[in-house]
Every structure is written in structure tokens, then in C-alpha cells.
Design a protein around this nucleic acid. Structure first.
Lengths: 215, 215
DNA sequence: AATTACGGAGAACAGTTGTTAACTGGATGA
DNA sequence: TCATCCAGTTAACAACTGTTCTCCGTAATT
């Protein structure tokens, strides 16, 4: 279906990706709204004007970063919620999966956490849309579970939003622990503390879920 | 104890406050890390160099804004969790209190939500510290409740963090709804949808809390 | 083989930024 | 009343920003 890219388009995509990577790196200690176009091109080693061949503006690049950062999550999300074993096992697996994802893509996680409420409107909207899709995916997965019997669509969406938010909070905590570890301010104990905190919070939520239709 | 401020110190505090207010206003559509010193002084109508009489840097001003934005919340938090009535009434009151706070101080709420994971480290740390104090206050309030019998200190802190995070998520949703309303993209129905979503999420959490020690 | 398309370079533009130094004028305290 | 203090001003600095226009070399197309 897709034959080999022309050597021209290949080069273009290569520098485009280099721009995205450089931007993500520079965003380690600043927000998107202060990221300069020249700053990015300088980091890549390309003329400032070349930027316009790929993105209309920094905000545009930001939106592209949202796709890159959140696009790969969809599959993972589904497998996280799906597994059929006991609740505790499922929670442990979810927390572990989040931790692994943060370790695999720390810059992506930081970017999403930072720009979700950041100063660039189009990027905020892109993140909100993607997270909304996540929540709907989670809802349809939750609906498969026999425990969802008697639940209204609305309540399922309420729960899935809770899960998605909780996932982000946990991811952000992992990231913090990771950074503290890198700069020597903390150790593996802190990471374990995050694991136990997140695990118990998810357990409390799943208990609430179990008794939602009780009285 | 505090006699009338000298007309000199009074003027100083006045322009200092003007700087804080102007900064908060300018942060409506950008992040702190892109806020310029000159931008702020220009908005106040004062020379750029006057800035240094009050703050060492923009980051320093940001930390001051954290105190201003979160300092007033402590009392409110306590009264929110404390009320002795039924769970549903308590939840309704909490959600209403958050909504009122967002309407009263929208810029403060946006600032905290934005800079909690923002690009300026000292500000992030200040927010983290303040929120940590909140969580501890909430924990000691929760400990008074007879429902907390048998709970470990650790579990109570876990729950209070859940409450604090949930409060922020809800506040941010209210803010979003408010802004959508202002720009005509949405109406009061959206605001009501947020109320119902937040209410049910808090209800699910409180159900989980009730059955935490069950089996 | 000749022509077009196009990613990138180069130079220049008007503005902007943070920070420095030396200065001013009115409140403060002796 | 007089000397001191100090919030705010003025002027200047080198460095930086986004954006435009023109040009170049090479891959793609004919």
C-alpha cells in the first residue's frame, strides 16, 4: 500500500521529526508558550526559516506533539483496563504499566501534564480532545466487564474520567520521583511510596465502584 | 500590634500588589515561563527597573502568587470537609464551594492549575508544598470523623490526597466551563454537567471510603 | 535531457528582552 | 532643619525574537 518514500519526502520527515524531538527536549525546563522558533531550529542545526516548511507556528508544533505523545497510549490503555483477573492484580498491573510508560517516555508525559492546562489554547484543546477519546475508550472497555451491569452510560463515563485523571496524576508523580532520583534528592524508596499511594487510591476507587449500586 | 504603615511602605505594597495583579491578568493566556518582566511593569505603568525593588525575578513573583492564590484556601478547605451532616449534603456543599471559589477567583485557580506542572521549578515546588499542607490539614480533619476509626495515618493521607486532587480537577473543569460560557461556546447546561459529574465522582470516592475496611 | 518543485540557507527588518548604572525627589528619623 | 534612605526613573547595552524576501541546489517530473 505505501511504497518507499521518495528520498526527498524522507528527508523532510526526518528534519520534521528532529524539530519535534528538539522541542520536546527544550520543554524539559520551560513551557510551550515560551519556546522560541529560533531556539528549536538552533537545537536542530537548521536555519530558522526552515521551520516554516514544517509548521505554521510553535502552537502548531505543539499540537503535533500532542498526537505523538498520546497516540501511542490508546493500545496500552485498553490492555490495562481489560485484563480479567482479580481486582488487585489488575490494579498492580495498571500501576506498573504507568510506571513503565513514564520511564519509557518521560518527556512525553511531562509535556502532556504541563500543557494540559498550559498557556497555548490549541494545544490545550488537542489534549482535552485526546483525553476525551481515552475516556470513551475506557468506558466501552468497562462496559464489557460484568461488574458494569446496571450502570448507566453516564455513570460509566464518570468512572472512566476518574480513571483517566487518576492515571495522569499517578504518571506525574512517577515523573517527579524520577526527576528527584536523577538529581539525587531522593531514592528508590520514594518511587515505591508512589507505587503504594497510587495502588491504594485505585483500590479505593474500585471499592467505590463495586458498591456503587448498593443501597 | 500593627500600627499604621508609613506612607512610604504603603505605596510600596501598593505597587507590589499592582505588579502581582497585572501579572495574574497577563497569565490569562500564557504561562509564567513566558511572562516578561517588562510586560508586567508596562501593564502597571511603571519603569522596568522598578520591578527589582519588589522581586528578584519573575520566578520570585510567581512564588508570591502561589502564596496569594492558595493562602486563602486553608480556612475554606477545613469547613468543607468538616460539616457533620449526611454524606450527600456534604458533597453537594463541597462542590458548591468549589464552584463559588472559581467564580470569585478565576485567575488564581487558573494560575495554580497551569503552574502546578509548569515550566518554572521554584513555583512548582511552592505549589507542591502548599498542596501537601492542604492534604495534611484535610487528613487531620478526616481523622476527627468517626468514620475514620481503624484507619491508618497513611491511608488517611492517601484519601486526603485523593480529595485534594479531585478538588483541583473539579476546579479546573469549572474554570473551563466558565470560559466556554464567556466566549459563547457553551451555556449554563455545561456548568450543570460539571456539577453532576463532580458530585458523582466524589460520591463514588466516599462510597469507597465507607467500605475501605470491609472484608 | 530539460524543466519544475521544493526543502533549506542567507540576510535583513523592526521589536523585544533582562540587566547595569547613575540619578531624582519626597518621606523618614535625628 | 538637615542628613539619610529608598521607591521609582532615565538611558543605554548586547542579545534575542518572529517574519519577510530572495536565492540555491537537488530530487522529482516530464
Amino acid at each position: 500500500m505505501s511504497h518507499t518514500l521518495g528520498i526527498r519526502q524522507a528527508q523532510k520527515q526526518k528534519t520534521r521529526q528532529a524539530l519535534l524531538d528538539a522541542a520536546l527536549g527544550l520543554l524539559e525546563d520551560q513551557s510551550l508558550s515560551s519556546l522560541g522558533l529560533r531556539e528549536v531550529t538552533r537545537a536542530v542545526g537548521v536555519a530558522p526559516t526552515a521551520f516554516y516548511r514544517h509548521f505554521r507556528s510553535i502552537a502548531d508544533l505543539g499540537v503535533a506533539l500532542v498526537e505523538e505523545a498520546l497516540g501511542s497510549l490508546h493500545a496500552m490503555i485498553r490492555t490495562t483496563v481489560t485484563t480479567a483477573e482479580s481486582s488487585d492484580v489488575r490494579i498492580a498491573r495498571a500501576v506498573d504499566l504507568i510506571a513503565r510508560h513514564v520511564n519509557a517516555y518521560p518527556a512525553h508525559v511531562r509535556f502532556i501534564a504541563r500543557e494540559r492546562h498550559g498557556g497555548v489554547q490549541p494545544v490545550r484543546e488537542a489534549i482535552r480532545d485526546q483525553l476525551g477519546r481515552f475516556a470513551e475508550e475506557v468506558r466501552t472497555e468497562l462496559a464489557r466487564d460484568p461488574a458494569a451491569e446496571g450502570w448507566s452510560e453516564d455513570d460509566l463515563l464518570m468512572l472512566s474520567h476518574l480513571y483517566v485523571d487518576q492515571m495522569l496524576v499517578t504518571g506525574s508523580l512517577f515523573l517527579e520521583a524520577r526527576e528527584a532520583q536523577e538529581s539525587g534528592r531522593a531514592s528508590a524508596e520514594d518511587l515505591d511510596r508512589v507505587v503504594r499511594l497510587a495502588t491504594r487510591q485505585m483500590r479505593l476507587i474500585s471499592i467505590g465502584r463495586r458498591h456503587w449500586l448498593d443501597p
